[in-house]
Design a protein around this nucleic acid. Structure first.
Lengths: 193, 193
DNA sequence: GTCTATATGATGATAGAC
DNA sequence: GTCTATCATCATATAGAC
């Protein structure tokens, strides 16, 4: 058995990381399987030993991106409202928009996913619901009112601001949009204290 | 001269209408030139007598959709705050999300455009700026504070809510997201009265 | 301007050697 | 599991008749 199971897992991990990076940066349809595999340091043909189709990779990549996203990783470090606010600020930063760290697939791929097949959209919906419920739990522990509605308001506003900023080239306008979204959300937090 | 100039304009109009509908519904990359032309009741080859390339059609289609969007059409009918609120409600409706009327390209194509070539992104940015400035003017006439910032907050929140709702299949979740966005925006309007 | 026909290129996916 | 080579398909764009 020349290839260990760890080796396969490591290869899959590289493919997924490459897929997240490239799909978020250039879009699902603009990136070929060959390009993903090249960034993962493999050749085109090896892909199908790991995924059944390009669409299945898409679905897995969204899950992967969600797990590794800034928001998911830092969420358990929240003990007070200021921590939560800091996380919002990080999400609404130019660094996130310019995809320096790990991008949030919900923002970078919204309409992309809307135009994909049902299985992919299903994963997007599940990912969103999972993020919403864990965020609502955090908000509840911080003693905020209407945690569920608040979480939805925060998520969709953040996704809107980041996805719009992502399409713009005018950096001043980007910054303005991101900061205005922050203002709205902080107001909304205060209103539910 | 067997073809009048009105005939050409009418053909272009049909192509643009088909492009808006299909691109918003299925995505730019999922729709071929042949499909657009079929919906416009012409054949593939006739396309290039009207547009230089598929990308140029994309840019023109975004402009076309913006001009014909619900928001642009109804904007001049605003005389009081309740009119403005009604427009927000229309934008944040299931009908808009399900693309029954004229879709707003800024919401239906956000990440799609982000992954397109610079010329298309430029048109998106110009369209957004144009909508923002006319909305800010309306808000100013309604004697609201910070009209420019308010307009940005409203646009990005609405785009976020509609584009997210568009990708979901769970109708309850769609409605919840749309309604929560509405609540945030009405709060924000009240805070700037 | 619109049609039919075609050139040209890229992509998703498979086959078989190692 | 990964490689090279290849198939089949579909896309954008062009050419030439009407």
């Amino acid at each position: 058995m020349p290839y260990s199971i760890e080796h396969k897992q490591h290869s899959q991990e590289r493919i997924l990381a490459a897929a997240v990076d490239l799909f978020c940066r250039f879009g699902f349809d603009k990136i070929s399987v060959a390009q993903v595999m090249k960034q993962a340091n493999m050749t085109h043909g090896a892909f199908y030993a790991h995924f059944k189709s390009k669409s299945m990779l898409y679905a897995q990549a969204i899950k992967h991106a969600a797990v590794h996203s800034l928001w998911t990783r830092e969420q358990h470090n929240i003990s007070q409202l200021s921590d939560f606010k800091y996380l919002i600020e990080s999400y609404l930063s130019l660094g996130h928009v310019n995809q320096l760290g790990s991008p949030c697939p919900l923002a970078f791929l919204v309409t992309d996913v809307a135009h994909s097949e049902p299985a992919v959209r299903e994963v997007y919906q599940q990912t969103l619901q999972s993020m919403l419920s864990s965020m609502a739990k955090q908000l509840e522990q911080l003693d905020l009112k209407n945690p569920s509605a608040l979480a939805q308001q925060i998520m969709t506003s953040m996704i809107g601001a980041v996805s719009v900023a992502r399409t713009l080239s005018d950096e001043q306008l980007q910054l303005s949009i991101l900061n205005n979204a922050k203002t709205v959300l902080f107001n909304q937090l205060k209103a539910n204290e």
